[in-house]
């Protein structure tokens, strides 16, 4: 496999295995689903109030943030199987991958470095795979 992400004059070329693309799309869908469930730890992690002395944000701002989360994750789902995406879409991929990473950490109740160190092999693999994809996309966009 060549470089998974390559910056080109027309955007960013993606060369990821199909199972990995499907996995990312499924995680993005799951994250979008969990983010709007107020009883879910993913909601609290991704859409908690920005002022901790308040129980909730201003409803309009809360809705804007929800749209932002759904928008970034939606771009990843829509372009998960694309060979080429624009730089704007690549930036949305970074946001979406970060949202997926944070959601995954919330589901695993990861709060500290010690929590990460105590993960089982499969959970560690999930976290490090997502981190590696984010790092590769950053390298491509900043090249």
């Amino acid at each position: 496999m060549s470089e998974p992400f390559r910056r080109m004059p027309t955007g960013v070329a993606i060369d990821l295995p199909e199972p990995l693309r499907r996995w990312l799309a499924a995680l993005a869908t799951e994250t979008a689903h969990d983010a709007v469930r107020v009883d879910n730890p993913v909601h609290r992690r991704l859409l908690g109030p920005i002022n901790p002395t308040d129980d909730h944000d201003d409803p309009v701002k809360e809705l804007q943030r929800q749209f932002g989360v759904e928008g970034s994750l939606g771009v990843l789902v829509e372009t998960a199987h694309a060979e080429m995406i624009s730089e704007d879409q690549a930036e949305e991929w970074i946001r979406a991958l970060q949202l997926i990473l944070a959601a995954t950490a919330a589901r695993m109740a990861i709060l500290t470095d010690e929590d990460v160190a105590a993960l089982d092999e499969k959970s560690t693999s999930t976290i490090t795979t997502l981190q590696a994809i984010i790092s590769l996309m950053i390298d491509a966009l900043d090249s």
Binding site: L46, L47, I50, N51, R65, V69, L99, A103
Partner: peptide
């Protein structure tokens, strides 16, 4: 500050204002 905080949340970074 609130707008910057929301932008940081857009990258799933934990941010608050005070």
């Amino acid at each position: 500050a609130a707008a910057y905080c929301v932008a940081l949340h857009g990258y799933a970074l934990s941010a608050t204002i005070q």
